[in-house]
């Protein structure tokens, strides 16, 4: 979350990817870093034991969020 907000402050659009279990942590970090409500992508948890197929599905979810959050509507 910190890295995405660093990029925003550098005027480069960014998106952080979190697993479901880190949603509240991401929300809190964005608030304490001065960007309350900063949007991010959420994928299933956990990643560390996911299969390659599982990782591909997670990447597909993230791609959808990348398009939604990084592009002008």
């Amino acid at each position: 979350m910190h890295d995405a907000i660093t990029a925003e402050r550098l005027k480069v659009p960014a998106i952080g990817v979190m697993t479901t279990r880190f949603v509240s942590a991401a929300e809190l970090m964005s608030r304490v870093l001065g960007m309350p409500g900063y949007p991010f992508a959420v994928i299933p948890h956990p990643v560390s034991s996911a299969t390659d197929d599982g990782l591909r599905e997670m990447a597909a979810i993230a791609i959808g969020e990348v398009k939604r959050l990084l592009l002008r509507l």
Binding site: L10, A14, V17, T19, A26, A41, P46
Partner: peptide, 18 residues
């Protein structure tokens, strides 16, 4: 050194919060 590169990119994807 990674932060220094960001300004040269058009967009950033960071993660994973896991």
């Amino acid at each position: 050194h990674i932060v220094a590169e960001i300004a040269g990119w058009d967009a950033v994807v960071s993660g994973l919060g896991d």
